[in-house]
Simulated assay, not measured.
Amino acid sequence: MRRAVIVDFGGVLVRSEDPRPRRDLARDLGLSVEALEDLIFASDLSLRAQRGEIPEPAFWRAVGERMGLFDPEAVHRLRARFFAGDRLNEALVAALRGWKGRVALGLISNAWSGLREVLRRLGLLDLFDVVVISAEVGLLKPDPRIYRLALERLQVPPPMAAFVDDLPENVEAARALGLYGIRFQETEAALRQLQGWLDGEISG
C-alpha cells in the first residue's frame, strides 16, 4: 500500500525567515510583534476567516479598520509588509517533488480562503494530490476530522501517513489518530525523519 506525506503550509512549506519586515511593521503600527501576529493569526477575526465564515478580503479589510487603515491600498501594503520576510522552503519542496508519484502528497492548512490561489501562484498546487484548507472545509487543526478528511481523500489509512507541522498540538492530534507525526523545527532534521520513515527505518 502506498504511503502518504502530508505537510502544513505556514511555518513548514513557507517560513518567516527574515524578521525585519514584520518587526518594522509592528513598530510603525505601535504594536509588539507578538500582538500583531496574534491579530493576524489567532484573533477571533482570523479564526472566523480560517473556518471560512468570512472571505479573506473581508478579513484584511477588518484588520485594516482595527489599525485605522480604511484605504484599500494601505491595507494591501500592510498585508505585503507582514509577509515580506516569508520564504518558500525550497529544500522541502525539492524533496516532495522527488517523492511525487511514489508517495501520495497532501497538505493540511489552517488558512484563509485565498490559500489555494497562493499555492497556484507559487507553482505548488499541482504538486499535491490532496489539498485540505480549513476555510474550505470549515474545520481547524487539531480537530481530528480534518486529518480524517485528508486521509479519506488520499485513500490511505493513518499508519501509512506521515504528517509534518510546526505546532505541537497539531502533531499530537495526528499521532493520536495513528499517523507518524513530525514536529517541524528544522528542515534537514524533518527530511531525515521523513526519509527514514519512508525507507522503513523508522516506525510510526
Rank of each mutant, 00 (worst) to 15 (best):
A161R: 09
L140D: 00
G98N: 09
P142W: 04
W197I: 08
P168A: 13
L139C: 05
K100S: 12
G101C: 11
G101W: 11
G181H: 10
V156P: 04
L122T: 04
R175E: 15
F128E: 04
L179I: 07
Q193W: 00
K100C: 10
R192A: 15
P157Y: 07
D165V: 14
I182C: 03
A190I: 02
L154P: 01
V132Y: 03
V164Y: 06
M160N: 09
V171I: 05
L107V: 11
A190F: 03
L167H: 15
S113C: 03
P168E: 14
D143H: 12
K100L: 07
L140S: 06
A150V: 13
R121W: 01
L107Q: 09
R145A: 14
Q185P: 01
L140Y: 00
R183D: 00
A91C: 01
L124H: 14
E136H: 05
R153I: 07
E172Y: 02
A161L: 10
L154G: 03
T187H: 03
L92C: 07
F163Y: 15
V171M: 03
M160H: 13
A161V: 09
G98T: 12
M160G: 01
L105C: 09
K100D: 02
A91G: 02
F184C: 08
W197H: 05
D199W: 09
Q155N: 12
G181M: 10
G98R: 15
P157W: 05
L194M: 13
E172M: 08
R121C: 03
E188T: 11
R121E: 13
Y180D: 01
E186Q: 14
K141T: 10
G101M: 13
I133V: 15
L124R: 15
R120C: 01
R120T: 13
L191A: 08
E172N: 06
A104G: 09
G196A: 13
L154R: 03
S109Q: 05
P168W: 13
A162V: 07
A135V: 00
R192C: 02
P159A: 14
L140E: 06
Y180C: 15
R102D: 12
P158R: 09
F163G: 07
L119C: 07
E169L: 15
